[in-house]
Amino acid sequence: MTLSTHQLKLLAAFFALYVIWGSTYFAIRVGVEYWPPFMMAGVRFTVAGALMYAWLRWRGDANPTWQEWRGGAILGVLMPAIGNGFVTLAEKDVSSGVAALVVATVPLFATLFARFFGHVPRKMEVAGILLGIVGMVVLNMGANLQASPAGAAALLFASAGWAFGSAWSKHLVQPKGLMSSAVMMLSGGVALLLGSTAVGEQLVATPPLAGWLAVAYLAFFGSMVAYTAYLFLLKSVSAAAATSYAYVNPVIAVLLGVWLLGEHVGVHEMGAMGIIVLAVVLIGWRPKPRAGG
């Protein structure tokens, strides 16, 4: 069977979310060893957004209208700035694997926020939300989050911001095509740099090669490639399917953290991973309709 161009794009987009975003938690954990968190996230998104915007304008794409800039900027603040900025902040104290586990609750938040836009959750979605809350309770019983209540709060705030942006994105006027990614990343990056200045972050020393490579990987693969894939999926498939990366990202992040960073994952974290992933599966579960008689 030959796949259509659209199907190939969908496969590539899902690969980007599942694998690349799963590995970004590792890259962030490496980067925050050498960069202040908001500054690093701000540099990542400002560079990625500016490069993509410049390339799109060079190839002849129209400049977004004021209304499109406004919609993209709102999503930029909610998703890259809050959604990613506070994950970066939390990874100063929380392991990359546990950060990915908390962010796996995004589909739970997205389902709740979708009510603001007229979506009534199905029974299976309600069950998934309740099970996800149980998973969060189990996760908080582990030593990793107990050692950093501020990190846990930052991760929940990040998840809520990202989920609200995802739910709102279908109802906001945005730039067309890839320009949507460029505006969102550029707006989010500027917001993060302003936030970095506001809280008094300073770069005390020039980062070594590992610090620069982490930012470069996050800017190109984690931002330009994966964000574009995510926005494409939000417009092409259901919100539940688009956020299904939450099934896979925690597993990849935990494995990379244990393998390359020597992070410890306890019984509570492993149990919570199973519960949260099952909860996300329930939210996205849609039984096939029975054939008519």
Rank of each mutant, 00 (worst) to 15 (best):
residue 185 M to L: 15
residue 246 A to E: 09
residue 192 L to H: 02
residue 270 M to L: 15
residue 209 L to M: 14
residue 233 L to I: 10
residue 201 E to M: 00
residue 191 A to G: 02
residue 176 K to E: 14
residue 177 G to A: 09
residue 272 A to H: 07
residue 270 M to R: 09
residue 229 A to Y: 06
residue 173 V to Q: 14
residue 233 L to Q: 03
residue 180 S to V: 07
residue 278 L to N: 00
residue 200 G to D: 01
residue 195 G to T: 00
residue 230 Y to Q: 08
residue 214 A to P: 10
residue 167 A to K: 04
residue 240 A to I: 08
residue 264 H to V: 15
residue 262 G to R: 07
residue 172 L to K: 07
residue 276 I to Y: 02
residue 172 L to T: 04
residue 208 P to T: 05
residue 257 G to K: 12
residue 198 A to R: 02
residue 184 M to I: 14
residue 210 A to E: 14
residue 236 S to R: 08
residue 178 L to I: 05
residue 199 V to E: 11
residue 189 G to A: 01
residue 241 A to I: 10
residue 206 T to Q: 12
residue 276 I to K: 04
residue 201 E to H: 01
residue 189 G to Y: 01
residue 180 S to E: 12
residue 187 S to T: 06
residue 254 V to M: 15
residue 253 A to V: 02
residue 208 P to K: 03
residue 204 V to S: 14
residue 277 V to P: 09
residue 276 I to N: 02
residue 243 T to W: 05
residue 271 G to S: 10
residue 232 F to K: 06
residue 210 A to T: 12
residue 189 G to N: 00
residue 275 I to R: 00
residue 222 G to F: 11
residue 179 M to T: 10
residue 223 S to C: 10
residue 269 E to T: 13
residue 183 V to T: 13
residue 231 L to M: 10
residue 243 T to K: 07
residue 265 V to D: 03
residue 252 I to F: 03
